[in-house]
Design a protein around this nucleic acid. Structure first.
Lengths: 218, 218, 218, 218
DNA sequence: TATGAATGAGCTTTCATTCAT
DNA sequence: CATGAATGAAAGCTCATTCAT
């Protein structure tokens, strides 16, 4: 006595509810992992936050570790999509480099959980990412874009030559990451609030100065 | 043939065994926290690693969290001591800046647990350090030293003016930190081993180039 | 041949097993708390006695203290129900007072755990009952009933006037309670078995004599 | 190279310090057992409260249970001494009975720990007292005294005959005990403070009324 | 698709007690 | 007489996970 399901999109492989439940779990898990790390996260809390039964998490994702991987992959997918929307290749080299720096800074501020996920994953020696089939595609296209920018700048004489785009990317990211990820200990050590608008502005200015001061010829 | 011990603290109210036990616990805890983070660390493993009864950990340190704080404070004390042994104030400005960059890089490589402790503490929003009485003294004297270096460089004309030592310190640290702390995810993304001698040499070279490229006038 | 169940709560959202498990835990906990007190009770033993997993105790009751409160509330509910089944209001005053005395005595003998629960709760200064929402409803209706009995007796000339029902209730209970709750130390002191049928009969007789000797207008 | 100890009393079998330490432990233990019961009492807290090393407790008393027995025996010895100081035998019967009632009430109020000790010991089914060599002497001399009072009253016509002094003693004690030992639950149930001066006065008055109303001829 | 019930293993922490001096 | 150091056992409680429906 199966009933016809008229409310489903005809070609949808899964029901809307299923998709919605999976997304709710992913969102809840992202919040929980961001706040407590992998070991500190509680499956119970994720279920409660998602408004769903705990059993469903296992039904859809298999285990806590697998769920973490899914969260991690989704986070990488989001930042990759944001990077690709920048269209740096259409800008003059110096402006493109400046824009990339700003983007990195702003993205880390808007998505602090991304930093936490990386910390967690590295604490576990990249174990989850190593098992990921999607991990290969994770390779940041930004590096290639950055390589092209540097080459264009070298050719038009604005940039010095011999800059490794991977190294520069890691430096841009690192200067932002360190400040934001370690803001609590840094605040304790330096006795100042690092997250005021003024402090944030100054940090971005400093990073830009360092990056351009390094890349620009003379 | 007992020798007079003149270099000891004037009064030793505790038996040597107590000190040794406490140090064994601290060492074991440092290893465990470094490997598994705060939530992932197991008190049982710490006790086993220390070769001591689990109860003794609570006897001396009170709780897992208090033990973590003790480990964290000890780690800060060590890096502070190492920093002060550099005597950067006796070097010419450019050399001092170069030396500081190398030191930071080398220290992070030699003491990867320090990075993990910072990650853990920041995951917990600096909660432990916030209640540390020693936290104030943690204020890195390196910043003052770096400020003096920058000022000397500005005066002798080698450095540009207007450089904030705190910002520069966080950039130096950040460029090293990001690479080393996130080496597993970075390796997965870039598909290369970041810890070969060659890769390490290149990274240090790059960081030095960036730092000096930014600080040096012209 | 399923019969319609009209005496049930209108909606039973939980499975019967859940109710049965909770009741099994309550019963086992009552036995354990009665025998060992609150601090001496072991959650492991309760679980074993209930034939259920220890985790389930926390799943349903939250903590050992909350479980104790549940046991205490259930004990109060039972004695209240038994009191209300007496229908003392339908008896002549002297007979009602006599019946109440007998009931109290018999109930304490049949439910020695009730005495132990009260001892435990008072050792902890009523901490659990104080946070009980049901505590207000615990107010023994017996006191009102007793008040009505005393008033009826005063009006028909059999009882003296001016008797506080609360005071009298506490005296009736106290004379029974002391004997039964402290029977071990009293036995040691007086060197006689207080629980033989003869001794029990004599004690009840004495209490009745005291109570009626006090209440009856001679 | 034994040194002469000139500060000791020549005939003292133990040093003053030893006596003082033992008494300190007994006092601390009494406070701890009174507050937390036997199972809830902590040897650590007793040592801390006594200002002495925990090991000494075992040196002097052997075990927590043995210490409890010592505390219990001391409590019995104190109440016995207080009872014997009453000299009820020199008073007229009714006055003596009244005085005994007052004494019992006042003593329980002044020494609430005595009630707690009895509760603890009875929770453990009198196990400790059963092992006590001094337990035989615990037999309250008050009962004999009370017996003589009742007999004198019967002979002078003021008291009714046939009163069992043990039963009456347990009733006097019980009416006081129940009120004081269970004051927290009773307060919760009746919603009134039982320990105000007024409430205490009324309770003593009631008990006296009941006792004398029972004993006095007509 | 979804859920409440249930669990084994293991967690941090506590405890009475003993060791070594 | 006195103590700080140390411990085995077990406590209350938590966790990721599975069962039954």
């Amino acid at each position: 006595m199966a009933m016809a399901r008229t409310d489903d999109a005809p070609s949808a492989p899964r029901s809307r509810d299923a998709d919605r439940s999976q997304q709710a779990i992913l969102d809840a898990a992202a919040a929980e992992f961001a706040q407590h790390g992998l070991a500190g996260a509680r499956v119970d809390r994720i279920a409660e936050l998602a408004g769903l039964n705990k059993r469903l998490i296992y039904y859809y994702f298999g285990s806590k570790d697998d769920l973490f991987l899914a969260v991690l992959e989704a986070a990488y997918a989001r930042i990759r999509a944001a990077e690709q929307a920048l269209h740096l290749e259409d800008m003059p080299p110096a402006q493109a480099l400046q824009r990339l720096t700003e983007f990195t800074w702003d993205y880390y501020i808007a998505h602090p959980e991304f930093l936490t996920f990386l910390n967690s994953e590295n604490l576990h020696q990249g174990r989850h990412l190593a098992q990921s089939r999607k991990a290969q595609a994770v390779n940041s296209p930004l590096v290639e874009t950055l390589g092209a920018i540097l080459e264009r700048g070298r050719q038009d004489g604005s940039f010095r030559g011999g800059i490794d785009p991977v190294q520069l990317y890691m430096s841009i990211a690192g200067m932002a990451y360190f400040y934001l990820s370690n803001r609590f200990t840094l605040s304790a050590i330096f006795g100042r609030d690092l997250m005021t608008p003024k402090a944030r502005h100054e940090r971005l200015q400093h990073i830009s100065d360092v990056v351009l001061g390094y890349a620009l010829r003379n």
